[in-house]
Design a protein around this nucleic acid. Sequence first.
DNA 1: GTAAATTCTGGGGTGCACTCTAGGTCAACA
DNA 2: TGTTGACCTAGAGTGCACCCCAGAATTTAC
Lengths: 140, 140
Amino acid sequence: MYIGELSAQSGLSIDTLRYYEKIGLIPDPTRDQGGRRVYQESIKDWIAFLKKLRATGMGVKDMARYAALREVGPETANQRRQMLEDRRDIVTAKIEELSDCLNLLNYKVDLYEKMERDGLETSSPLEAKVQTKGLLKKED
Amino acid sequence: MYIGELSAQSGLSIDTLRYYEKIGLIPDPTRDQGGRRVYQESIKDWIAFLKKLRATGMGVKDMARYAALREVGPETANQRRQMLEDRRDIVTAKIEELSDCLNLLNYKVDLYEKMERDGLETSSPLEAKVQTKGLLKKED
DNA sequence: GTAAATTCTGGGGTGCACTCTAGGTCAACA
DNA sequence: TGTTGACCTAGAGTGCACCCCAGAATTTAC
């Protein structure tokens, strides 16, 4: 598989694939006679995992550390497990934070809906504006 | 309240407060005789909300758009509600994505724990390495 | 009265994660 | 044979969200 196909199948751009290779996230692939990168099918699983790590907010440096440990072999399993546990804690906290944000967003959307309904019920736009102005100042 | 105190109480650095002011996230505060920024207490609520929006991953440009709409007045409530609803969808999706990631992390931490246990049970480190190598290649 | 602390402005610097460009090589097809 | 399209390298550029710095003014404390 050449880099174009891997890009299409993995969802990473060609540039990103080369960048990931350069910083050690992806092992150097073999080359064909013309110097083109030739990838194994199995690389797709690894890339899928890398994408998951990125989705957790892990920076590429940490990912490169993880990738380097993986290259060393099974004796680094302990360190990798630790990294994943750390990341798990971070993700758990982030989910909680986002849930909080979601509650706030829901609350405010409700408020806005009420405001807009009230604005329609009182057929006086001007009054409605004055009425809701207080709410706005407090709540946005 | 001067900028130093606001920084301490809001958790944003002095530089960030001035930056937010420059890009329109925070309304221009009044100044004292010496030209120093003087903030109202109420600004803290607004900043707290801005921090929530940032926590959802909203970029400062969108935040500035929201802030600008807010400055205009209640007649922009509809657009702001729309922005918050859009953001709500994004946050909901992000929480789902992170939950997926969390499952994967838990699964892999479990795997690593099993691997390390097996490594201890078989008192032969070399064999253990060979045994787990297959798992590693498949699972990391 | 002077030294220290705080704030001011304008503009440059940083780290991150890519993304793009220029100038070339190579394989396959008409 | 020649041209098209995919790929190559090295390095520069981008957008984001700050962060830092120099040099000046002002306020506060002693």
